[in-house]
Amino acid sequence: MSVDDVVAELRDGMTVGIGGWGSRRKPMALVTAIAKSSLKDLTVVSYGGPDVGMLCATGKVRKAVYGFVSLDSIALDPHFRKARQAGEIEVSEFDEGALQWGLYAAALRLPFLPTRAGLGSDVMSLNPELKTVTSPYHDGEDGEDAEELLAMPAIHLDVALVHMNRADRYGNTQYLGPDIYFDDLYCLAADKRYVSCERVVETSELAAGGPPQSLKINRMMVDGVIEAPGGAGFTSCVPDYGRDEAAQKAYAGGDLFVEASR
């Protein structure tokens, strides 16, 4: 597939989950193509970085679902801030662990998963759809009250977009950096899953590239593979490349589609 093929599959109003974390291994080639498309009214679910900022700045976002939006070495994304401070987008802000739980619940086809993460905080009042659940196993014999936990609702995705280091043409993918983040959960939580990668290789080459556990997202979880060298843009995609701090600075300064030097 090409980047444009993926954009052609998307529709206005879809819920799109974007993998990576902050300014790390973000599928920026795909995100940039969406930003330059005519798509609108998207709900974006993300451990937010420049993906969220770029889509806000180009008017693609109706709603953002996140725990944070940060560029790591630059603490706050100015484009996301601007959209928020103008009241341009709806948001659901969750604890970042609870966000994982929402994706995991969707992945497991459960309506919710219980957690403490959010209890007592304004996450509960600012997201009035959130409900609590009382432990059904409490018998009161210990003289204590039952635990009342946040029932974190499943966050179902229409589409998941993630960027990997390697993949074969069947959708078996490989991450070679320090962390998969939540990319496998995005894939399991979504109806359609598109993976861009630095390099498409033969299946026989995957095992030589890294340990077996680097093959975390496989062809059961992927609908399309896009070869996109440098596809993480200025965000980091170690060990293939680190973050291009100068390009990120330019992005933060307003040069939205700055080319990273790769």
Partner: peptide
């Protein structure tokens, strides 16, 4: 007004989960 804050900061991040756990 959370719908239109004077200043958007980083987000609640892991703070709710950290403090309760």
């Amino acid at each position: 007004d959370f719908a239109r804050p004077k200043a958007q900061l980083i987000g609640v991040r892991g703070a709710p989960g950290n403090t309760v756990n």
